[in-house]
Amino acid sequence: MNYEEPLFFTVMQYAEAAERDVVDMVSGNPDWGAPDGVGEGLHDYAETGGEAFQYPPSDGLRELRERIATRRGVDTERVVVTNGGAMANTLGMARALERRSGDEVLLTDPVYPYYPGKAEMLDGTTRFVPVDEEGALDPADVRAAASDETACIVVNTPNNPTGRVYREETLRELAAVAEAHDALLVSDEVYDHFDFTGEFTSALAIDSEHVVVTNSFSKTYAITGFRVGYAILPKRDAPAARTRNMLTNVATSRPAQAAVLHALKTTDADYHEANRERLRERVDSFTAALDEAGAEYSTPEGAFYVLAKFPDYPGTMANVKRLVDEAGVAGMPGEAFGDARSEWLRFALVTPRVDAAAERLAEFF
C-alpha cells in the first residue's frame, strides 16, 4: 500500500472542481450540528481573558481530564488530551514502538489508511490481517500473525470503513495476544456514540496493562474542526506519552477544550440518540437504492459508512472520478483502504442529501 498521496483530499478537490453539482460523501464530517453546549462554552470562554488565554497544561485542562476519567472509569493520570483523535493514535502507536525492540504494527484489511501511514512515519513495519466478508476480525488470525516483532495491534470499533462493532470477547482475545508478545493493543473508539447494536464494548472493560484506548469529540459532537481528542494509556506508559505530546504538539487548543468541557456537562443522551436514529434512516434509504442498482453492500453496525460493490465497476480512483463527473456523487475508492475491499466504494452518510445521492446512483447503475 502506498500512502504518500492523501487520497481523501484528492477526491474532495476533484469533486469541488467539478462543473456539475456533486453530493459529497467522501469524508466523515457530521452535518447535524453540535449540541448547544459547545457554542455556550465558547461564549463563556471568550469572556475570561487574561491568564485563561495562555498555554493550557500540555496534557489537557485538568477539569476536562477529570471528567473524561470519571466517564471512562480510569485514573485521571492515565488521560492525555490531544489534538484530535489522530494525535491520540499517534501517541499510542509511538509508545508501542518505542518501548519494544520489535517494529511491527498489525492492522486489519480493510484499514483506515492513516493507521499504516502513521506506522510508516514512525519507522514501523506493517502487517495486515484480513477481516471476513461481514467485517468481523478473527482473533485467531491476529494470534497467528503476531510474533516477537509485534509491537502494536491497532483496531477501530465501530469500524471505518466496514461498520463492524467488535464484541467484548474479540477485544479480550486481542488484548491477550498483545500481552503474550508484550505489545500494546491500540483501540480507536472514535465512533463509540454511533453504535446501532447496543453491544459496543470499550477495550477499557479489559483489565490489562497492554491496552490503549483513543477517542475524540470530533464525531461525537460534530466538531471535527475543533481538534480535541484523548488517549487513555496504561499508568506505566502515560508519562512517556505526555512527554511526546508536549514535544510534538505543545498543547491542545484551550478554547476548544473549554467548549468540549461545557458540552460534556450539559449534553444529554437525547442528542446522541437523535443522531443515531438519523443515521439509521439514512442507512435504510441509501441501501434501498443500492438494492435497486444491483449492488452488494455492507449494513453498518456502527459509525456512518457504507461499502458498496457495483457490477463491473471496481473501486478505483478512475471510477470514483467518473462517478463524480457522470453521476454527481463523490465517494472513496475501496483501494484506498487496502486490498480486501479494492473492488468496493465507500460512502459517508453524513450529508442531508443522502436521498439525492441514492437516486443518482440508482439511475447511473
Rank of each mutant, 00 (worst) to 15 (best):
G49C: 06
D195E: 02
Q54P: 12
K265I: 06
R172E: 13
A96S: 11
S147L: 06
T157N: 09
D182H: 09
P300Y: 02
S58A: 10
V213E: 06
K309L: 01
R71P: 06
V22P: 01
Y114M: 13
D36L: 11
F217Y: 15
A256F: 06
Y114L: 15
F128R: 12
E301D: 11
T248E: 14
P6K: 07
L261I: 05
P6E: 07
L233S: 09
W32T: 11
F128K: 07
E199Y: 08
D123F: 08
A336C: 09
E149M: 06
G124H: 05
H193V: 15
A362Y: 11
G338N: 05
T224D: 15
A327T: 08
N159A: 13
F337K: 03
F347W: 07
E326V: 06
V155D: 01
S187G: 11
S298H: 09
A140K: 12
A274E: 13
V154R: 01
D24K: 10
A183P: 05
T316W: 02
R227W: 12
R353A: 09
R72A: 10
E133P: 10
L171H: 04
H43A: 14
A69G: 09
E173M: 06
E343T: 13
D192F: 08
V260H: 04
S58W: 03
V11Q: 00
F8E: 11
A119M: 09
E134I: 00
G84D: 07
E277I: 09
P314K: 08
D312S: 15
A241R: 00
G33E: 08
F310L: 13
A308G: 06
M317H: 10
F304Q: 12
N29F: 15
E40C: 06
E63M: 07
P130N: 06
E343W: 06
L137R: 07
S147I: 08
Y45F: 14
P57K: 10
T162R: 10
N83C: 11
E40N: 02
V129Y: 03
